[in-house]
């Protein structure tokens, strides 16, 4: 036992050892080969992800020049993969703006035009009819969502029901932003909570944290026909999202940061939606806030939404 250790496989060993070594080596090689074969589906993925994409920095660290490059790359990818010419812009918050949304629950009849408009505007996956908005049909006399139903399909409004559309509330104290381990989602100066789809790692902790079911995960690569793609895009909002990342409503920042109204508001046939800059004392949303009694969804959670509901008196 006290021989000098001749740790293998120094070649001088007995036939037993060399056989053992050979077998072990063969097994290891076989194991590695099997592992390579097992994970071979990943090769397709590595072809799809370019080095620039892999190494891309966080949005907030990109210089103007970097952004140009990234946007050009994304536009080219959309052209190649979806066959559509799109323009991706970098819409930044307008100084002195804080967006607030309100819905008149006395007017909303649950027809779902906003849901559809969101779907088209934001280039959602056509397979699932994805949308950032869900509408609950609720019995009059309660605010208990447990009594609500989102899958109704009869003529609306139904007798004894009211309709509660829910989308991202752009909270001032956003649990989703706190949850994100990589700062892929954050709140901007105009109150919009955005996601850098090229930074998100897809852990879905934000989805668990959000009390309003506002976040969506791209369970697969979205499918949108070329002629249906909305070419008017923004990096932080409606550009076609990659597979495996989380996305959310941005109050259509590619429209609203250019002064326009959100798509869901324009689509509403009942005029139940009110949108504007709460910091402007003469804005319609400010008048509403000062003159109507508003309610906040799940106010007890302290999320401080920038989204209100109100009823006509």
């Amino acid at each position: 036992m006290n021989e000098t250790p001749s740790f293998p496989p120094q070649g001088s060993g007995s036939p037993v050892l060399s056989r053992r070594t050979a077998v072990k080596g063969a097994c290891a090689t076989l194991g590695l080969a099997a592992f390579g074969a097992a994970i071979s589906p990943l090769t397709k993925l590595t072809e799809d992800i370019s080095a620039e994409e892999f190494l891309q920095q966080h949005y907030q660290e990109l210089s103007a020049k970097d952004k140009q490059k990234v946007f050009a790359r994304l536009e080219a990818e959309t052209k190649e993969e979806y066959g559509a010419e799109v323009t991706i812009r970098d819409d930044r918050p307008i100084p002195g703006t804080k967006f607030v949304y309100a819905i008149n629950l006395s007017l909303c009849n649950g027809n779902g035009k906003c849901v559809e408009a969101c779907h088209r505007e934001n280039n959602h996956n056509r397979q699932t009819n994805e949308s950032y908005i869900r509408i609950l049909e609720m019995p009059i006399g309660t605010m208990d969502m447990g009594k609500g139903n989102i899958t109704y399909s009869h003529a609306v409004p139904a007798e004894g029901k009211f309709y509660l559309p829910v989308q991202c509330q752009q909270c001032d104290n956003p649990p989703c932003v706190h949850a994100c381990p990589v700062q892929a989602t954050w709140k901007e100066d105009d109150g919009i909570v955005v996601v850098d789809y090229n930074w998100c790692i897809g852990c879905r902790y934000c989805e668990a944290a959000c009390p309003y079911h506002a976040r969506r995960f791209n369970w697969q690569k979205p499918e949108v026909p070329a002629d249906e793609i909305n070419p008017d895009q923004s990096y932080l909002s409606n550009r076609i999202r990659p597979q495996g990342v989380v996305e959310k409503c941005t109050y259509c920042l590619h429209r609203t940061r250019r002064g326009r109204l959100p798509a869901c508001l324009e689509a509403c046939p009942t005029g139940a939606r009110v949108f504007g800059n709460i910091l402007d004392p003469e804005s319609e949303i400010r008048w509403l806030f000062e003159n109507k009694r508003v309610l906040i969804l799940k106010e007890h959670l302290g999320t401080e939404p920038s989204f209100f509901y109100f009823f006509d008196e």
Binding site: L45, I49, F54, H58, P181, V182, Q183, A184, W199, C200, I201, G202, C203, R204, F217, N218, P242, Q243, G244, V245, V246
Partner: peptide, 17 residues
């Protein structure tokens, strides 16, 4: 993870922790 290729974003000082 939906994007294991971006695991490095989780590494302190290299990603954004």
């Amino acid at each position: 993870l939906g994007r294991p290729d971006r695991f490095w974003h989780l590494i302190p000082f290299i990603g954004r922790f």
